[in-house]
Simulated assay, not measured.
Amino acid sequence: MGSRGTPMLDQLGQPFPPVDLRTLSGTATLGLTQRPESVRRARDFTRNTLQGWRLPQHFDAVGLVVSELVTNALRHGLGRPAVPAQSHAEPVAPISVARPLVELELMRCSGRVICAVQDPSGALPRSSSQMDGAAESGRGLHLVECFSDGWGWRMLTGGRGKVVWAAFQTS
Rank of each mutant, 00 (worst) to 15 (best):
R4H: 09
L9G: 06
S121P: 02
C146E: 13
L124R: 15
P120S: 01
T23D: 15
L64Y: 08
R75L: 03
R80S: 10
P15L: 05
T29G: 01
P100Q: 11
L50C: 00
G13Y: 03
V97S: 15
L124W: 09
I114G: 08
M8P: 00
P17C: 02
I114Q: 14
L12H: 11
C109F: 12
S38I: 02
T6A: 04
T157H: 10
V113D: 09
R40C: 01
R112Y: 12
E145D: 10
V19E: 06
V144F: 14
R154F: 03
A61I: 11
L64V: 12
Q51W: 13
T71G: 15
A61T: 11
C115R: 03
P100D: 08
W151A: 02
S3N: 10
V164N: 06
R154D: 01
P7V: 10
D44V: 04
F168G: 00
D10A: 05
P81Y: 11
L104R: 01
L9T: 15
R126K: 07
R40I: 07
D149S: 03
S67G: 12
G138L: 02
M1C: 06
D149K: 02
Q118E: 15
C146V: 12
S127C: 03
S121L: 02
H76W: 05
Q51F: 06
E103V: 14
S171G: 11
A166D: 13
G138A: 05
P81R: 06
G122V: 09
L106F: 09
R126Q: 08
L74A: 01
R139F: 10
G152P: 03
G111I: 01
G138D: 12
L55V: 02
E103D: 13
D60Q: 11
W153S: 07
G79C: 04
P36I: 11
V117W: 14
W153M: 05
L69M: 10
G2W: 08
G159H: 15
L32Y: 05
V97Y: 12
L50K: 05
C115N: 07
T23E: 08
W151Q: 02
G138V: 01
A28P: 08
P15H: 12
S129W: 14
V70I: 10
K162A: 09
G52M: 00
L106P: 03
S67Q: 12
R160E: 11
W53K: 02
E68Q: 04
S148C: 00
W153D: 05
I114N: 14
L156K: 15
P56H: 13
S67W: 13
R160S: 07
P36S: 07
R154H: 14
R75V: 01
T71K: 14
P100K: 13
V164W: 04
R41L: 14
P125T: 11
A82M: 05
A123K: 13
V92E: 13
I95L: 15
R126W: 06
R35P: 00
D119H: 11
Q169G: 13
Q51S: 10
S87C: 04
V113Q: 11
V113F: 12
V163H: 14
S67M: 08
G133I: 07
V83Q: 10
V70W: 10
L55T: 04
P100M: 05
H58P: 09
Q57H: 08
Q11T: 13
V163S: 02
Q130L: 15
S87F: 09
F45E: 15
R54V: 01
A73V: 03
A73H: 06
R154P: 01
Q57A: 11
R4V: 09
T170H: 06
T157C: 02
P84V: 09
